[in-house]
């Protein structure tokens, strides 16, 4: 295995799926001739043709709904939505149809659909291209929500997502596409959170784009003699509460890092579960490091200020007296 980028890892996963299952096709804005907004699908049109690498009009609701219908019709669509901000135009289809059809139909209609989209800030693209709204989707029963943070997960999560008989949303943090690593050959599961760094003093819970922040903070803390354990949620719904609680029971302290806004966020959910299930293991209140509650500003220094940074996480850990 050689070193590849996150972008290449996703592309390899899609290519493998297209080769191994003729029910799989890719559909979205600029996935074909343009090569993918983030160049994920570059070259696939040439290899698989326009029926399977299907450029769509700017109709998020229309083509996400069409993905749902195609899934009902026996296909295994991979629908790409450019960014999570644009997915709001398809929220009706995702929520009212994809997530609800199985239940509403009394178990008759599965929607084996995969929707991928970019999320997150860091590229100075301001308030309509930068938000982390995956927590909203994690609110919805009937969906499985994934946040691959590593090259391995970027490479390996798609196959089981396509095997899932129910709708799966995959959130790819835009800042991760250029990161590099060496994927392993092993299959991954879609149920469990992962301990990305062992440690005894404090648990830092993160996912997607904030995993790097958490690991960076752990490194700084190590130099100060604080041994941080880092949990990567990987699956935002259903949450692997057992792994989170087990980790906190070991370190007795927890910081949750979330690029979403604090109020009503995924970090709030994780913190609640920790207090519900590990309250007596805690030596300090659960801390959270989230994005500032503003629409994302353009200016670099302001964007940096909004996003959770390594220093913020380090400061939160120090403040809890680890």
């Amino acid at each position: 295995m050689s070193v590849i980028t996150y972008r290449e890892a996703v592309r390899q996963a899609i290519r493998e799926a297209l080769i191994s299952d003729d029910r799989v096709f890719v559909m979205g804005e600029d996935v074909g001739h343009y090569g993918g907004t983030y160049a994920v699908t570059l070259g696939l049109l040439e290899e698989f043709g326009p029926e399977r690498i299907r450029d769509t009009p700017l109709s998020e609701s229309g083509f996400v709904g069409a993905g749902i219908g195609a899934a009902l019709g026996g296909m295994r669509p991979i629908v790409e939505v450019m960014t999570v901000n644009f997915s709001l135009l398809a929220l009706d289809q995702i929520m009212n149809n994809a997530a609800s059809l199985l239940y509403m139909s009394g178990g008759q209609l599965n929607v084996p659909l995969v929707i991928r989209m970019a999320t997150g800030a860091g590229r100075q693209v301001a308030a309509q291209h930068s938000h982390s709204l995956e927590g909203w989707y994690a609110h919805i029963p009937g969906l499985r929500v994934l946040a691959p943070a590593t090259i391995d997960d970027a490479r390996r999560m798609l196959a089981p997502a396509l095997e899932d008989p129910d709708p799966v949303l995959i959130f790819e943090h835009a800042m991760l596409y250029g990161t590099e690593g060496e994927p392993s050959q092993d299959a991954v599961d879609l149920t469990s959170a992962a301990i990305r760094r062992a440690g005894d003093d404090v648990t830092i819970v993160a996912y997607g784009g904030t995993l790097r922040t958490a690991l960076g903070a752990a490194q700084v803390l190590a130099a100060e003699g604080i041994d941080a354990q880092v949990v990567d949620l990987r699956i935002l719904r259903p949450l692997d509460t057992a792994t989170i609680v087990g980790a906190v029971a070991h370190t007795h302290r927890a910081v949750v890092v979330d690029e979403g806004w604090r109020s009503g966020s995924l970090s709030a959910e994780v913190a609640s579960r920790i207090t519900e299930e590990a309250f007596y293991d805690l030596d300090a209140p659960v801390a959270r490091v989230c994005s500032a509650e503003v629409p994302m500003p353009y200016a670099k220094h302001l964007e940096d200020e909004v996003m959770p940074q390594v220093d913020d996480v380090v400061a939160a850990v120090r403040a809890m007296g680890a």
Partner: peptide, 20 residues
């Protein structure tokens, strides 16, 4: 395939069934 109570919500789904 339903029974959809979102006005126009079924149209994209119908397109997808036809696409399949």
């Amino acid at each position: 395939f339903g029974g959809n109570a979102i006005v126009a919500g079924g149209l994209p789904v119908a397109v997808g069934l036809a696409l399949a």
